[in-house]
Design a protein around this nucleic acid. Sequence first.
RNA 1: AGGGCGUUGGGCAAGUGGUUAAGCCAAUGGAUUCUCAUUCCAUGAUCACGGGUUCAAUUCCCGUACGCCUUACCA
Length: 493
Amino acid sequence: MTEEVRVRYAPSPTGFLHIGNARTAIFNYLFARHAGGKFIIRIEDTDLKRNVEGGEESQLKYLKWLGLEWDESVDVGGEYGPYRQMERLDIYKKYWQELLDKGLAYKCYCTEEELKAERETQMANKQAPHYSGKCRHLTKEQIAQYEAEGRKPTIRFRIPDDQKIEFDDIVKGHVSFNSSDVSDFVIVKQNGVPTYNFAVVVDDHLMKMTHVLRGEEHISNTPKQIMLFHAFGWEPPVFGHMTLIVNEQHKKLSKRDNSIVQFIEQYKNMGFLPEALFNFITLLGWSPKGEEEIFSREDFIKLFDAERLSKSPAMFDKSKLEWMNGQYINQLPADEYVKFTIPYLVDAKLLPAQMSPEQLKWAERVVLLYQEQLHYGAEIVQVSDMFFNKSIVNDDLTKDEEKILSGEQVNDVISSFTDELKSLTEWTAEAIAPKIKVVQKETKQRGWKLYMPIRVVATGSQHGPELPEALELLGRDLVLNRLDHYLDVQKTV
RNA sequence: AGGGCGUUGGGCAAGUGGUUAAGCCAAUGGAUUCUCAUUCCAUGAUCACGGGUUCAAUUCCCGUACGCCUUACCA
C-alpha cells in the first residue's frame, strides 16, 4: 500500500502573504491535490519578536482568496494538531530532553555578544562564520560557574564529525554536504523556545509529512534537519527546493524590497483577479508541457508535476502579470466586470457611492468601453479619464493634437458638425453616427481629417473609444458647449 | 572566505547527442480602424566563455567568469 501524500505550507506569521509565500503554498497545494493527498497549513510562530499582529489571519485569508483550501490547520483542526508551534512546546521539550540525555545535544552558555564577536572576527579574517564549539565539553564545574553567574543556556545539537549528508532533491537532483560544513546549531533558545530547524523536524515527523517543498533558501538547512532526523532514528521526508523568485535586479524578493509590489493584498486592491494571480504565480518556476499559458486551478491540479519545477530562478515579470490579468478581465461576464470596476471610480471620487439608476447605467456603459484593454481594476481610473473631465477648453493639448487642429478643414468640419448635432432630437450613438456621414458629404472630408478634429474638440483628446458612443456618453450639453466654444474662439481670432 | 545552486533572444521559458532551438510577455515594423485599444502578420539567439569526450555538443565531463542563496538564540 502506498503512503498517502502529506505536504504542508508552514508560514511564520511575521508578515502578510506575499508572492513567495503564496507560491510555496500553491505548489504544495497542487502537489497534494494532484496526488490525491493532504495539504496542511502549520503556523511557525517560534520567533516571538517578529510575529506580527494579524499576520496569521491575513495569510489564511488571502490564501483562501487565491482559491486554496486545506485539510488540516489551526482553523479547521485535524488529528495531528495543534497546528501552531507555540502550542506544541511540551512536545518539543520531550524530544530535546531525549537528545540531551543521549549526549547528542548540549547546553551552551555563550552570550549573544560573545557569539557575535566571534562571528565578526571570522568574517574579518575572511573565514566562514562558524560556532567554535566552545561549550561542547564543559566540565561540571564550568557549568556550575555559569549557572551561578545567572547565565541561561541555549541547547545546541552536536554535529557528527566528517559525515556525508546526501539527499535526492526533487528539483535540484542529488545534493551532498559534509557535516563539518555546518556547526553545532542552536535547537532551543535561551527563552526555552525551539528554533525553526528543530521544530520543523519534530513536527514534520509527528505530522507524517511525506514531502517538503519549500524555497531554495532552505537548502542549507536541509543537512541540519536530516541530521536531526537521523539522531531520532526517523525517516526524513523527500525534499524539493524551489528556485527563488527574484526581482528585476535579480535579488531574492525580500519583504522590504520596494521595487516591486509583492503582497497579495496589494494586488487584490489594485484589481488583480485571484484566478489570474494563481495562474501567474504557478508559472513562476514551473512550466507545463504544452504551449498554453492560461490555466484554471483544476487544469493545474491535473497537470502538476513536481519534476517540471525549474532549477533556475524565476524573475517576477510585472508586465506579463498585467497581460495575464487582462486576459481574465476580458473573460469576465459584463455584469461581473461592471461590479468589479465601478468601485475603483467611486474610490477615486469620480462617481458617488449612491447612484441613480440612470447614473449607474451611464457608468456601466463607460466602464464597458474599456473591458478589452483593461489590465487591472484600478487602471479604469486613468483610462476613462475623458468621461470625468468636464472642462470646456483643453489648454493642455499635445503636439499631435495641436497639429490636428491646425488643419485647414477644421473649422468647416466643426461648424458643420455642430449644426448637425443641434438638429438632433435624440442624443444617442445611433443618431450621432449618421451625422458624421452628413458632415463628410458637406465638407468633402473623410477619415482622419474628418474624425480627428471632432474628436479633439469634443472629447479633449485624440485618443478614446468609438466616437459616436463616446459623444453620447459625454452628453449633449458638454459636447455642444465645447464645439460652440471652439467656434467662438475661432471667430474672434 | 567556506558550502550550495544557477547561466537558452530585452523578460519568462520549452527542448534535444545530429532540429528550421517551441511558446508567452515586451519592443519595433506593417496591415485593418477616425485615434488608442482590439485583431492579424513580420522581425530578432554563434543556447555565458574556454577546454575536453564524440563521427557529431546548446545538450555529457572539467575549468573560468558572472550571478544568486547560505553559513542566526529568523523562518
